[in-house]
Simulated assay, not measured.
Amino acid sequence: MIDKIIEDVSDIVAIIAAVISLLALVMAILSYRVSRRALRISEQEFAEKKLPLKEYLIDSFRFDDGERRFIAFSLRFSNVSASSRTLSTFDLEVHLADGQKIFCSPYNYILPNHLLFGQEMLGVPLNISPKTVVSGWVVFAIPRKAFGFSAIEKYKVSAKTDDNFDVSMEVFLVRYCDVKEEVKI
Rank of each mutant, 00 (worst) to 15 (best):
M27Q: 12
K156C: 00
C177S: 14
S21T: 11
P52C: 02
K101A: 15
D91L: 10
S83K: 15
V94N: 07
D8W: 02
W137G: 02
T86Q: 07
N79I: 09
L111Q: 05
Q44E: 12
Y176W: 07
F103Q: 14
Y109M: 06
P106R: 00
P143R: 12
Y155I: 07
S150N: 03
R40I: 10
P52W: 03
F117E: 06
R175K: 14
E55P: 05
I12G: 01
Y176N: 10
G66C: 02
S105A: 01
N113G: 00
E182Y: 08
V133E: 10
D65A: 13
V157D: 04
R68T: 06
V179I: 06
S21N: 14
V139G: 06
K4Q: 10
F63E: 08
Y32F: 01
E45L: 05
A14E: 03
V80K: 07
P112M: 05
L39F: 04
V138A: 10
R175L: 11
S158C: 12
N127C: 12
A38I: 11
A14G: 02
T86W: 11
Y32M: 08
S10Y: 01
L57F: 00
D98P: 00
L22R: 08
I12D: 04
K101W: 09
V183W: 04
R69M: 07
K49R: 11
F149L: 09
V167N: 06
E153F: 06
S129E: 15
T86I: 05
T161W: 00
D8P: 04
S60G: 15
F90V: 00
Y32G: 15
S129A: 08
K180M: 14
E55G: 07
L126K: 14
A18T: 15
S21D: 03
V134N: 14
V183F: 09
E7R: 13
D8I: 04
L126E: 15
K156D: 08
L116Y: 02
I6T: 13
E181S: 02
I102H: 11
H95I: 10
V34P: 01
K145I: 11
R62H: 03
K131H: 05
V183M: 09
E120H: 03
R144A: 04
E48D: 06
K131L: 13
D8R: 15
A17P: 08
L116R: 12
G123V: 09
D59S: 12
D162C: 14
V133W: 04
E93Q: 06
L51G: 03
A97W: 10
A141N: 08
K50L: 13
M1V: 09
L116H: 13
I41F: 09
A17H: 15
